[in-house]
Amino acid sequence: MNALIRLENIYKIYKIGDNEVRALDGVSLSIAQNEFVSIVGPSGSGKSTLMNVIGCLDTPTSGEYYIEGTEVSKMRDDRLADIRNTKIGFIFQSYNLLGKLTVIENVELPLIYMGKPRSERHALARAAIERVGLADRENNRPNQLSGGQQQRVAIARALANRPPLILADEPTGALDSRTGAEIMQMLKDIHQSGNTIILITHEKEVAEHAQRIISIHDGKISSDSEVTHA
């Protein structure tokens, strides 16, 4: 199996006073290219910490983490920033768009940090916006869009750099069920076109859109199973 990401014995330990909190307690897992995986667990289970580690927003206390065979668990800040920029697209529950920028400027941001020249940036950003069906809104600001539209802008931003891995943290959490379903369909389409998607959620129905569900409890993987679609 060609693993896109591989975690080996990942620990994340916080010290609060004399107490030791094991947010991640020896997690090992491997996700292949073009998998669609859900990570589920109640709050406090460590799934957010796991997402932060997978997203290179945080480094583990110990253990090894590889993306496309490169160890990233011991990288420094700026290298991690580059990995986030080129390998990972983030989709957040609260969209996290920059309110003062227009849709296209938001989508261009990762391309700016990648160092793409202006014309290429425009082309790539426009392609991503078209893909989420917002071509006519590219000069609007986020507050002029509905929640579902804002989340689609965030998806376009995640796709703009063409990263292999899309990390979606409760992407439907702030949306009504109909819009949520649209967003899920969009993620599925993205998966169909070749991306690997990791979806973090606490809703079982949302998780079942994936091919594989990993459950986290008390910092440990409690189950890891394929979903059989009826």
Partner: peptide, 16 residues
């Protein structure tokens, strides 16, 4: 702060 967090998450280096 949040804006900085977003920029960092999508790949802004310290220098940027």
């Amino acid at each position: 702060t949040r804006e900085i967090g977003i920029r960092k998450a999508i790949g802004a280096r310290r220098k940027s």
